[in-house]
Each structure stands twice: as C-alpha cells, then as structure tokens.
Lab assay of single mutants.
Amino acid sequence: MGFKLLSKLLVYLTASIMAIASPLAFSVDSSGEYPTVSEIPVGEVRLYQIADGVWSHIATQSFDGAVYPSNGLIVRDGDELLLIDTAWGAKNTAALLAEIEKQIGLPVTRAVSTHFHDDRVGGVDVLRAAGVATYASPSTRRLAEVEGNEIPTHSLEGLSSSGDAVRFGPVELFYPGAAHSTDNLIVYVPSASVLYGGCAIYELSRTSAGNVADADLAEWPTSIERIQQHYPEAQFVIPGHGLPGGLDLLKHTTNVVKAHTNRSVVE
C-alpha cells in the first residue's frame, strides 16, 4: 500500500471513529477524501466538511520552486461564519470567499490569524475590503508590521502568557507558548472536538522541520505538551499544512522538532 493511500485511509478511519463516538456532533463529509496538494491548482481553494458547521479550507501556493498546501478553518456561528487564517495570499483568499459563498452561503463576518507569517495573514486586506472584521493577538499584529505583512485590524486580548485561553464565538483560542513562531495560536472547536494546530503542528508525513527561522526550538516541545494537557479530548487535529489526523500529530511534531534540534547540535 502506497504512503499517500495509507495517509488518506488514516484520515478516513479517524473521521469514521469520530462519527461513531459522537453521532450528534459529527456529520463528516462523505463526498470524498481530504484534498491534497496535487489536486488543488494554485489560485483555487477546496472546502472539506469535518463536522456539522465545521470545515477546513485548503489552498496551495508556490514557494521556492515548489507547491505547498495550506489549511485553515471555518466555523459556523449562528447565521454567520468565523474564518481562521487566510488562504495564503490575496488571490487565494478572494477564491476562498467565493467558494464559501458557493458552498455554504453564509457571510464571513470575523477572521482570526493564528500567527504573523504570510500563509496566515496574506489576504487580510481582501477580507477587510469584503467587510470582514480581522483579528490577531497584539504580538501577531506587531510582528506582521515588522515583517511588512498585512496586519489584522483588531487585537485579541488575554493571550499574552503561555497557557492563556479565551473564548471567541464558537471557538476557544489558546496560546501554548512559542513553537513554530513566538505568537502562534491554537484554535479548538469544543462542539466538535476539532483542534486546529496551525503551523505549530505537523502532518504525519512530514519528517523535516522546514521553516524554523522564527521558531523557538527549545520551547516548542513544552508548548505541545500544554496543548495535549489542555485538549486531551480532541479527536480531529488539523495541521497548518497537509493531512489531518488525531492527537498523534502532536507527538510526531515533537519528535521531528527534537530530531532537528539534535542534528543542529551535532553539526
């Protein structure tokens, strides 16, 4: 069995187990497998329904001669939608809004960016022009300005110390501490036991640490421990890039980060 097929099978099995364990909360999309990078042309966006009122959005972007996937989250909030992270750029984010209108038909009224990198804030200006209120932590807003990236308009308070959590509509926002970046936030959907790890969490097929220019490698494993301790009931975990899975993604990420750190020390 090929690795790609095995990865998709694991996603399907995880979703099936969740649907059985929580039949009222989960209505997993039966329309197909989780979209992969090879299936999404740059400039297009796919939506994948995880649970009743919960979707991931998947886009792709060219970077350094390669094409990478990027995940975000959409959560229903009454007759409105909360968006977590842009679709990595203005063109993708405009396509995301169009796809949401086509498939869901509810307005996106608020959006949260989970850290300051372009795959999370690139497209904020498109959201703002569409009347979406954009939010991020003060740290993310400051770092985005320093980096020359787009800056969300509103500040999220109460997320300055490791372990801080605040309720934001249908989700809980959690600051686990520094990891992929010093400002990275985690998003949890309690009604569906869905954990969105953003770039602080890796997919299972990833074996290298990737972009760690703004990471705190020493603190990252401790931050992941905080996530595990705060959300032990999480059933569906979405990484910032690639295929979702279960809580095993947290341990896998820790292993990859520690291996990278150990290699760096040896070198």
Rank of each mutant, 00 (worst) to 15 (best):
M1Y: 05
M1L: 06
L9C: 12
V11T: 08
T14N: 06
T14D: 07
S16G: 15
L24Y: 15
A25F: 15
A25Y: 14
A25C: 14
F26D: 13
S30T: 14
S30H: 14
S30Y: 13
S31A: 11
Y34S: 15
P35N: 15
S38G: 10
E39I: 12
V45S: 06
R46W: 10
Y48S: 14
G53A: 09
V54F: 03
A59C: 06
A66E: 15
A66W: 04
Y68A: 15
I74H: 01
E80A: 10
E80T: 10
G89K: 04
A90F: 08
A90C: 04
N92C: 01
N92M: 00
N92S: 06
A95P: 03
L96Y: 00
A98I: 10
E99H: 15
G105L: 07
P107T: 14
H115S: 00
D119E: 03
D125M: 08
D125T: 08
R128P: 05
A130H: 15
T134M: 05
T134G: 01
A136V: 04
A136P: 05
A136G: 09
T140Y: 05
R141K: 13
R141M: 13
L143R: 11
E150I: 04
E150L: 02
I151F: 07
T153D: 12
H154V: 10
L159I: 10
S160F: 09
S160T: 12
A165P: 13
R167H: 10
F168G: 02
G169P: 06
P170A: 12
H180K: 02
D183L: 01
D183A: 01
N184F: 00
N184C: 00
L185D: 02
V187G: 01
Y188E: 01
S191Q: 12
A192F: 08
A192D: 07
S193K: 13
E203G: 07
L204C: 06
S205R: 07
T207C: 06
T207K: 14
A209C: 04
D214G: 10
D214K: 06
A215S: 09
L217H: 04
W220A: 00
P221Y: 07
P221K: 08
T222Q: 14
Q228D: 08
Q229E: 12
Q229I: 14
Q229C: 02
H230L: 11
Y231C: 05
Y231P: 01
Y231L: 00
A234F: 03
A234T: 07
G242F: 04
G245I: 02
L247T: 14
L249H: 03
H252C: 01
H252P: 02
V256S: 02
V257E: 03
A259S: 10
